[in-house]
Amino acid sequence: MTKWLILFRKEWLEMIRSYKIVWLPISFIVLGASQPIATYFMPDILSSAGNMPEGAIISLPTPKPFEVLASSLQQFGVIGLLLIALSNMSALSLERSSGTAAMILVKPVSFVSFVTAKWAAILSLSMVSFLFGYSAAWYYTIALFDSVRWLEVLLSAMLFALWLGFVGTLALMFSSLIRSAAAAAFSALATAALLSIVSSTLPFKQVWNPGRLPTLAAGSLDTAQHINNSSLSVWLTAIVTAVAIAIALVIATGSMRSRPSDV
């Protein structure tokens, strides 16, 4: 356990020194805040765009506050996911190709600790960044539109954080399997996109599919929609996702164990 903490602390130190601890939260905050602000000013932006025909009247219905929050979740689902995948894509492959994994893994350190400490460090920063970003979205939604109940916001944040964590773990796993960082990021994003497309297009309910999580998160903001989602099926999806994360970590650990270095 002590060794795990030492590895974990090293990862945090690295994120501090590389300023990841600064740019990741800032990116998420900008992302979260921009959606309610842009929605609020949309009529003004459109009218000042200048290419509207003379006399055209723009009338946009004022969105409900939960819709604004849901659309900021959509932003996180695209750009946020990309940020998470990019920050994980070379986590293990770089250690391996630079030779540092060989330096560390000849010491009496367990492979599980090596992988999970890295995973926990990156994901904890990602979660904190997402929470900051989502709080920013919530704050501007309240300030510019109307209030949203915190219980619903919390529930949607947890579901969405699980989805981000799942994709982050996928990227980490692919970084242990694939040498190229770009290919690892692509594989993780492609898997995520595939799962979420499958969950929304196929005509039957897929409790097992983590790709449902973004929809569930957005849906949980809407009080009217709550009733349609039985809480049991939400729990099942969450459990399946947690198991999938665990399996991905087992695969990453196995890959590091069988091939600790490239050279």
């Binding site: 060794k3 030492i6 090293k10 060989a102 560390i104 000849v106 010491k107």
Partner: peptide, 29 residues
């Protein structure tokens, strides 16, 4: 591995660490 100290052909380090930090890190591990 507890009994072995190993220096690879081209040792690799974390460039952002200081030499002393790396030694302490290695020692604690």
């Amino acid at each position: 591995r507890e009994w072995i100290g190993y220096l690879p052909q081209t040792p690799a380090f974390y460039g952002w660490m200081t030499g002393r930090e790396f030694l302490v890190y290695a020692g604690r591990l």
